[in-house]
Design a protein around this nucleic acid. Structure first.
Lengths: 191, 191
DNA sequence: CCGTGATGAGACATCAATGTCTCATATGGT
DNA sequence: ACCATATGAGACATTGATGTCTCATCACGG
């Protein structure tokens, strides 16, 4: 019985399904599995074959988001160079996953039970980046690292929503997030 | 068991019920009316007497949020004085309504159909505040007013969540939002 | 003391979402 | 050509939320 070889016959792109689910669930948290399957272009039966149920789908969404976020942190090499540059690189790598991240940070339903252990690790890496910037003198110290982390999450979500609403161009999101987070809206006196 | 310490026992405090609903629905968008009623301290029958159904409850939530937001804009007198001060005052007045606002900005379900006309008015007032700051030279012009508005919404939501998660103290939210939005995390050279 | 009105408790039917099943079809590999 | 696997379509029962109803209770005012 040496069958069960994975990887070639799988015509369903789980990542695509999950992204579709993230988009729909962000817009309407009560979206039915029927609609998710329909928009993803698969039947409800197939959706159910890949994800046992709604909870499993949400769980997979969480897993994917954490994985992508972690990958973005790695790709941005946030521990190298100055914190400002590291933060810019991070935003660049996070932006493509904005919709997914926005879903995870707003769907607090995930945290009613136990929260995924991966989040602790991500939060810690984020916090350490801001702390590093504070210690190097790049970042102000009157804003806690924890708040800066939460603010980044919030801004990423706001940007995703603004793009969806057509208020800002997709190509501008990266700059908008980075500039606002780093410099704020106030015109600097030095300029 | 008839308790409830209101002045008059025969009238349910709709505002209290709505705030409870906002809190619960923010944490879990699929919270049942049963649980909302229970946490609000009323029976499901009474909840249904005041709000015809889930949609009506959401609608009332939207109305309340818009009303409170509009009141905050008025109370802050955002058209008077410099834009920076106006923005600080606005944040001060908005902060108590953070949970409610956070719900409205994340519950995009509201916008699948027609979006409430009140939002246009609110967005316009917010945008004009940021435009005013740009024209007076206080705010930078490379960040659009629309984005600044969305960013404020996002930061208010992030702050509400951070407080709920115990990451920042309630008394600090005002400062955290204002300082980050105005000045960003980067240490200013002028200091 | 009694009546009006709001509420609490619960029964009941309904509906939508969900989970599970079967069967037919399509695809890819052997 | 044959077989294994994935998929699509749909039937079916179940579950939970919801809307509606009735009745008992409690508070307040006349």
């Amino acid at each position: 019985m040496s069958h069960m070889v994975y990887g070639c016959v799988m015509t369903v792109d789980k990542s695509h399904v999950l992204r579709t689910a993230a988009t729909l669930l962000t817009r309407k948290a009560t979206t039915s599995l029927d609609e998710i399957a329909k928009v993803a272009g698969i039947s409800r039966a197939t959706l159910h074959r890949h994800f046992a149920g709604r909870d499993a789908l949400i769980k997979a969404l969480e897993e994917l988001g954490i994985t992508r976020f972690e990958a973005a942190l790695d790709a941005a090499a946030i521990d190298e160079g100055d914190a400002t540059g590291a933060l810019r690189r991070l935003i660049t790598h996070i932006e493509p996953e904005a919709a997914l991240l926005a879903f995870l940070t707003t769907e607090n339903q995930l945290f009613v039970g136990e929260l995924h252990a991966g989040w602790d690790r991500l939060d810690e890496r984020m916090n350490s980046l801001f702390r590093r910037g504070q210690e190097s003198g790049e970042f102000r110290v009157d804003l806690t690292a924890a708040w800066c982390t939460e603010a980044l999450y919030g801004l990423v979500g706001a940007a995703a929503w603004a793009v969806h609403a057509g208020r800002i161009a997709p190509r501008d999101t990266e700059k908008m997030i980075a500039e606002l987070l780093l410099g704020g809206v106030r015109r600097s006196m030095e300029q």
